Simulated scan of single mutants.
Amino acid sequence: LVQNHPTLAVTFVDNHDSQWGSSLQSAVKDWFKPSAYALILLMKDGYPCIFYGDYYGVSGNPPVHRGIIDNLLEIRKNHAYGEQNYYFDHPNTIGFTRVGDEQHPKSGVAVLISNGENGDKVMNVGKQHAGETWKEATGNVEETVTIDDEGNGRFIVHGGNVAVWIPEDAPQDPKQDARKDDAGEES
């Protein structure tokens, strides 16, 4: 639906019918939700919908994913612009890039997701980023990536995780720290 009719597609990770204990109990495991939210929030097409329970909590339980969702929303607002390139060529490590645009300085994003082992992929973020250093914006990877003359970089992701890369000198809200949950504990 997203590919054929992007203006009609509402993308979501969970909803009130798929939460624990309901007849359509969620098949999306908690460890994968950050990756799923990266897909719906940072890809070009579709209208993403954040599940209330993932953002505010359910039945008095504190939200587990609010920090990463806030971080991804900030990245969407400031960086997820321009042409999109897909790298869905591996059964366990997939990625996509958004090359940015002129209306949003320092925009562009590279997303790499693993549901298995550690992975890496050479992905193109556009020649306009040649020579730039990119950082991983969710706190999941400490290394940086240098973009070559053709706009390519070798991006990495740790197993069972998501890595979201942006230009190192791009502004990022310092209040966002996706590694901490709402209780301030490492997640």
Rank of each mutant, 00 (worst) to 15 (best):
G100F: 05
S114C: 03
K127D: 07
T97F: 09
V2R: 12
V122W: 14
G46K: 15
D177K: 12
L112G: 10
W165S: 03
S26Q: 14
Y56F: 13
D30Y: 05
P48M: 00
Y86R: 13
G126V: 04
I68K: 01
D149Y: 12
D182Q: 06
G100N: 05
R66N: 01
V99C: 09
E186R: 05
G60N: 03
Y56L: 11
G160K: 01
V145P: 01
E186I: 06
Y81L: 02
D177T: 08
A9E: 08
Q128A: 10
D148P: 00
I156Q: 14
N85H: 14
D17S: 09
V162F: 03
F32P: 02
Q19H: 12
D177L: 05
N152V: 07
E132Q: 14
K106D: 15
E74F: 04
Y37E: 02
P6R: 06
I40T: 15
A178W: 00
V122E: 13
K33T: 00
D89L: 06
S18K: 04
A137D: 04
G184D: 00
R76T: 08
T146N: 07
P62R: 11
W20L: 07
A137M: 04
Q3V: 13
P62L: 04
L39R: 14
W20I: 08
G184W: 02
Q25T: 15
S18P: 03
G160L: 07
N124G: 07
D148N: 14
R98W: 08
G131F: 14
Q25V: 15
D54M: 00
V2F: 05
I166Q: 01
E143D: 14
Q25C: 13
T133V: 13
N140F: 11
G82P: 08
G100W: 03
S23L: 15
S107N: 12
V164E: 00
F88P: 08
A137R: 02
H16A: 10
A163W: 07
T133K: 10
T133D: 05
E102C: 03
G151S: 01
H16C: 09
N15D: 13
G151E: 07
P105Y: 15
V145E: 03
V13W: 01
I50W: 01
G151P: 07
V111S: 03
E74I: 05
I113F: 01
G131K: 15
K127Q: 12
W20D: 04
L42K: 01
P167M: 02
H5D: 09
V122G: 12
E136V: 12
D182N: 02
K121A: 10
G53R: 01
Q103F: 06
L112V: 15
A110N: 14
W134F: 10
Q19R: 15
Y56C: 06
E102S: 12
T7N: 10
D182M: 06
N92P: 04
G126Y: 06
N4Y: 13
N4Q: 13
G60Y: 06
I69R: 01
H90Q: 08
Y87F: 15
A183C: 04
L72R: 04
L8C: 09
G95E: 01
R98H: 10
D45S: 15
P6F: 10
D181L: 02
V111I: 12
V10I: 09
E102N: 10
T146I: 10
W20R: 06
V2C: 11
A178E: 03
Y87L: 08
A36V: 01
S18R: 11
G184S: 00
D181C: 00
K44Q: 09
V122R: 14
L42N: 01
Y87D: 05
T7P: 00
T146A: 08
D45G: 11
V141K: 00
G159N: 05
